[in-house]
Design a protein around this nucleic acid. Structure first.
Lengths: 221, 221
DNA sequence: TACGTAACTTATCAGATGATAAATAACATT
DNA sequence: AATGTTATTTATCATCTGATAAGTTACGTA
């Protein structure tokens, strides 16, 4: 039974508002990632080492704190350098994709990110939409375009990307992201060498894609 | 504001206990799949069209009802016929894997199953362990064995399945399951032809596996 | 060292929530 | 039609929960 009061040893401390707010947000992210958004404000406060009403000096409601957690989590998970990485045809596609997904894994194979993303999706899915649109436009479509080029198929200008084709690229993304789900949601041990596993995924994907890609594009006519 | 009382039009109805219990469990599955396990007993009762205390005649606590939902959901999602499907070398491996994953999709591409599985994983992960062990032993290991055979590599008796190798098979499973996550957790539209998408996944996987599989097994020594 | 600002705590509320006890009424049997 | 059983409801409790108001004290400044 966690008490709402502080242990006598921890003396009351005044922080400047910016510091305290950062502290609250940081712990809120950790807390909601663990428990889910039904986590109670009293328990959160006790983890921070403050009293529950203090939260309401910094955020007008629990919902607004959750909103803030969303923002904080979604912000800056995308490195603008990646925009040009996948379409850069001066390098082999395998190399580009391996580099991208390894770099991306460093941003995204993260307890808090994965779990809050899942919780948010299961709750409403509204915020996930925006993020998945980003993935589609900045990763999956470029992958389809490069795949067309690699397999000497008509460019996406002449024949637009088909749903089924995009679904193929979602497959690569699924290999990648499901690893995070297994680890952070199902609590399974993570593979020893993540970079190697990603390398294998990409190699397998690119070696296998030609076997189905042509048929898909032809079915598109 | 849902009232706890019934509309006057709906007259009180006595069901025999077995029927009523089935009714409660069925709606509880739907309800917790939608809302999560923090869903309130009063709201559940109102959906069933009964009063909240009646739930407690059938289940001693909310937790025991959730336990029951777990059981109901995990029961009978595995068809014993599948045990012999993947290892049957009288047929081409592509064919076997396509048949298996299509059949499996009919059992598992399901709103209630996917969401309760995710909620349960995020909550404790205890029940998911059992299920994922099943997948590992009945799907992924057999896939690795068949892959060894197909690629003319040493059998799994002489060189045991390596973690990295199993991770490759998790990749195929990830393509498959992430599609369900996108649809049922993120609320994205599902691909028009699921069977075709699964066929593509399996073909790509088997066409691509040789490019990485040999290296993995050799690294194992 | 005194003083004022505001960060922080204590006290508390109103409504929600899981659970229990007692009252009611639907249905089977006679 | 009368009667007994029990499925179901009404009433209610103790605790929890998000949120507010009022009191307290740490700290910067003169």
């Amino acid at each position: 039974m966690p008490s709402t009061t502080q242990p006598a040893s921890a003396k009351r401390k005044r922080l400047n508002p910016a510091e305290r707010e950062a502290m609250i947000v940081k712990e809120a992210i950790r807390f909601f990632a663990e428990i889910g958004f039904e986590g109670k404000t009293r328990e959160l406060a006790s983890r921070i080492g403050i009293t529950q009403p203090l939260l309401y000096r910094y955020f007008p409601s629990k919902e607004s704190l959750i909103e803030r957690v969303y923002q904080e989590i979604y912000m800056q998970r995308w490195n603008p350098d990646w925009d040009t990485l996948i379409p850069d045809r001066s390098r082999p596609l395998v190399e580009r994709l391996i580099e991208f997904y390894q770099a991306y894994s460093h941003a995204v194979y993260d307890y808090e990110w994965v779990r809050i993303f899942l919780f948010s999706g299961l709750k409403s899915g509204e915020l996930n939409d925006r993020y998945l649109s980003l993935i589609r436009d900045k990763v999956l479509r470029p992958v389809c375009e490069e795949l067309r080029h690699m397999n000497k198929l008509p460019s996406t200008d002449s024949i637009e990307i088909k749903e089924e084709e995009l679904e193929l690229a979602w497959g690569l993304h699924g290999m990648f992201f499901y690893r995070a789900v297994r680890h952070f949601a199902y609590n399974m041990p993570i593979v020893a060498n993540t970079d190697q596993a990603i390398t294998n995924d990409v190699r397998l994907f690119l070696a296998g894609a030609p076997a189905v890609h042509k048929d898909i594009v032809e079915r598109a006519r």
